[in-house]
């Protein structure tokens, strides 16, 4: 346990780096369109050296699917989390610095978003907007910003009363300089601790949307692969297990490295 807490961040970071490299070099590892039918359907894994992880019911190369799916999952996850965190920071900062009325209004809106489960909201949004990678990013961004907003607002409110902010006021700094140069950098620091969780959740939501068929049909994704394989769960379980493992490993790596980063920066407790 202790060993995991010390080295989890490093391992997570390394795994994340490997996944990112695979995603970047997908076209080198598995050239061609992963949606092409290339071999006999349902080749089991570890039997054909050309398709080490076998093929699915339409004869598509699973290794190619996983490798190209990494690209989709990682980009959509990262972009969606970036969108969510940006919106959260914007709303939280505005609420923290503005007066009572705006603060109250923004917080009620935040709570309204928070009462709807993240996944249901994203699902509803994608159904309305249409299934494309960009819309999935927008949907996840809109549905998962509230935790960041609340955290940033709380930090801004705390730091607004800090001694060093008082000292800056006495030093004659302009209100905007105090807000953006004294308060905000400190208030944003704990957001680092949320990055790992937000990205991890975004990857999960993306996979779940893809599982339900609500992702770009022209792009292969892990969630979609699980969905395709579920009908053959009894005869060819590897169709579901392999992309499932990919999702779990990616989310774990992201969460661990986010955690390690936060610990390294001293935001979470050391050791």
């Amino acid at each position: 346990m202790k060993w995991m807490r010390c080295h989890g961040g490093l391992i997570g970071g390394l795994v994340l780096l490997v996944i990112a490299l695979i995603a970047l070099c997908a076209h080198l590892i598995a050239p061609g369109d992963p949606l092409n039918m290339v071999a006999r359907p349902l080749t089991p894994p570890f039997t054909d050296p050309r398709f080490p992880l076998g093929t699915d019911h339409l004869g598509r190369n699973i290794l190619a699917g996983l490798v190209h799916g990494a690209r989709v999952s990682m980009t959509v996850g990262a972009a969606a989390a970036a969108a969510a965190i940006s919106v959260g920071i914007l709303v939280g900062t505005l609420a923290g610095f503005s007066g009572r009325i705006i603060d109250d209004a923004l917080m009620r809106i935040t709570e309204a978003f928070q009462t709807v489960p993240t996944f249901l909201l994203a699902l509803a949004l994608v159904s309305v907007l249409g299934a494309s990678a960009a819309n999935v990013v927008i949907a996840i961004g809109i549905s998962s910003w509230p935790p960041t907003a609340r955290l940033v607002r709380a930090e801004v409110l705390r730091l607004k009363g800090a001694d060093y902010v008082d000292a800056a006021r006495l030093a004659g700094r302009a209100p905007l300089a105090i807000a953006f140069l004294e308060v905000l950098p400190g208030a944003l620091q704990p957001v680092v601790a949320l990055i790992g969780i937000t990205v991890g959740e975004a990857i999960l939501v993306e996979s779940a949307l893809a599982f339900l068929g609500l992702s770009d049909p022209n792009l292969i994704s892990w969630g979609g692969m699980v969905a395709n394989g579920r009908a053959l769960l009894r005869t060819a379980p590897y169709l579901v297990v392999l992309p499932g493992i990919a999702i779990a490993v990616a989310v774990l790596a992201v969460t661990l490295s986010g955690d390690g980063l936060a610990r390294r920066l001293g935001i979470l407790g050391r050791r």
Partner: peptide, 13 residues
């Protein structure tokens, strides 16, 4: 003004 806690009255960054 000079504050009570010298560490708290300087921006750590």
């Amino acid at each position: 003004m000079v504050f009570q806690d010298p560490l708290a009255c300087f921006n750590p960054r």
